[in-house]
Amino acid sequence: MALYYLTVFEKNGEKLCDESFEAQSEQEAKQIGQRKLEENNWVVKTHRCTSAAGKLLLFGR
């Protein structure tokens, strides 16, 4: 398992989410990140999902 990070921001810079999670692969991490965004209605917010090595997996807005 590898560690991934999901961060979501408001336009004013306030962090709505700053959490880590584990996944078996980058593809699984993308799916988990996307699901968390959808569950919390954060899809339209500025967001990013990165690996522990800093690789960008998801980015929006």
Results as ranks from 00 to 15, higher is better:
L16Q: 12
Y4E: 09
K45T: 02
N40G: 01
W42F: 15
I32E: 05
A52T: 01
K15G: 05
E28L: 14
G13A: 03
A23W: 14
V44C: 07
V44F: 15
Y5F: 15
K36S: 09
E10D: 11
C17V: 15
N41L: 04
E39P: 01
A53C: 04
K11I: 06
N40H: 11
K36N: 13
K55T: 10
C17G: 00
A2E: 13
F9H: 14
V43Q: 14
N40K: 14
V44A: 12
G54C: 02
Q24D: 08
E10H: 14
M1I: 03
K36A: 14
E28G: 02
E28Q: 15
E39F: 02
S51N: 08
A29Y: 07
W42S: 08
L37R: 01
L6T: 00
K11E: 10
W42P: 00
Q31N: 12
L16P: 03
R61N: 13
R61P: 09
N12M: 12
K30T: 06
V8C: 07
R48N: 12
L16H: 13
L6I: 10
K11P: 10
E39D: 09
G13V: 01
A23D: 06
R48D: 13
K36D: 00
S25M: 00
V8F: 03
S25T: 15
K36M: 11
N12V: 12
L57E: 00
N41E: 04
N41V: 01
I32S: 08
L3R: 09
W42D: 03
Q24M: 08
Y4N: 12
S20K: 13
T7E: 07
Y5P: 08
E38I: 03
S25Y: 02
C17Q: 07
Q31M: 01
A52K: 10
L56M: 15
L56R: 03
M1P: 01
E38R: 10
F59V: 14
L58V: 14
E28F: 05
